[in-house]
């Protein structure tokens, strides 16, 4: 295990707890500042997952909920990228989970009553474990934008939710991937709650013609960066610091 503590979290890339344009934050944002604490073994460690925990079709949302011989409806896409740490190193062997609406913008969830129909062949749940070079890939269909109750005429940009584990619980991250060129990104209070435009842009996947397969599936590239570790302490650094 790497015992180097994680670098302090850079909050300038994360949404603040209270974001008035995102109504659900009003009653859920803590009002006290986060209490700073030193990392202990508790936060430096975290769960590990083996391939045995997953099913053979978990990373293929096109077929993992479909009846035999059928597949999900919508634009076929391959979402791929690398999981990296703050030093740019590949992070292998980590669990990534994704979930999303179907091509019409409807979630397969008891609480989603949007007009767009469910697709009998699409569940919207996928999982994989990053490869030795940190890479990951999911086959899915491009989700549709959908309206949501936020007090006005609000539409979420098309997005895929990502849940990512790191080496330690201090790196645990949930985020969303958006699609290049989506005009809803600039109008979405959830996306716009990220205070730094360059940081938000890193959540926007790019069309990747190099991995696009002719007559089959388009590819989108999405890299994820986990919180990094503190700079290496060199031997000539005074002791006790």
């Amino acid at each position: 295990m790497d015992d180097t503590p994680f670098a302090p979290r850079d909050f300038s890339v994360h949404p603040p707890p209270l974001w008035p344009d995102y109504r659900s934050t009003h009653l859920r944002a803590p009002q006290q500042p986060l209490l700073q604490m030193p990392q202990t073994q508790t936060e430096m460690t975290g769960p590990t997952f083996g391939h045995a925990a997953l099913g053979p079709l978990d990373s293929d949302l096109i077929v993992n909920y479909a009846a035999a011989g059928q597949s999900a409806q919508g634009p076929r896409i391959l979402v791929h990228g690398k999981l990296l740490d703050g030093q740019g190193r590949a992070v292998p062997g980590k669990l990534i989970e994704v979930w999303q609406a179907n091509a019409g913008g409807r979630y397969r969830h008891v609480n989603d009553g949007y007009l767009a129909p469910l697709d009998d062949n699409f569940g919207g749940c996928g999982r994989c474990i990053t490869a030795p070079d940190g890479s990951f890939a999911f086959r899915t269909v491009q989700p549709g934008p959908y309206p949501w109750p936020n007090g006005g005429n609000d539409w979420r940009p098309a997005h895929i939710h990502f849940s990512v584990f790191g080496d330690g619980f201090a790196q645990r991250l949930i985020t969303q991937m958006y699609f290049e060129g989506d005009p809803h990104i600039a109008r979405c209070p959830i996306a716009q709650s990220i205070p730094d435009a360059a940081a938000l842009d890193r959540l926007v996947a790019r069309l990747d013609m190099d991995r696009t397969v002719a007559m089959d599936i388009r590819a989108y590239r999405f890299d994820i960066v986990l919180r990094g570790r503190q700079a290496t302490v060199f031997e000539n650094k005074p002791q006790g610091t």
Binding site: D10, Q87, G88, I174, T175, I194, R202, L203, V225
Partner: peptide, 11 residues
């Protein structure tokens, strides 16, 4: 080594 910023969190 390059220093990459953490991916932003989203709900």
């Amino acid at each position: 080594m390059p220093q990459l910023k953490e991916s932003p969190s989203q709900t």
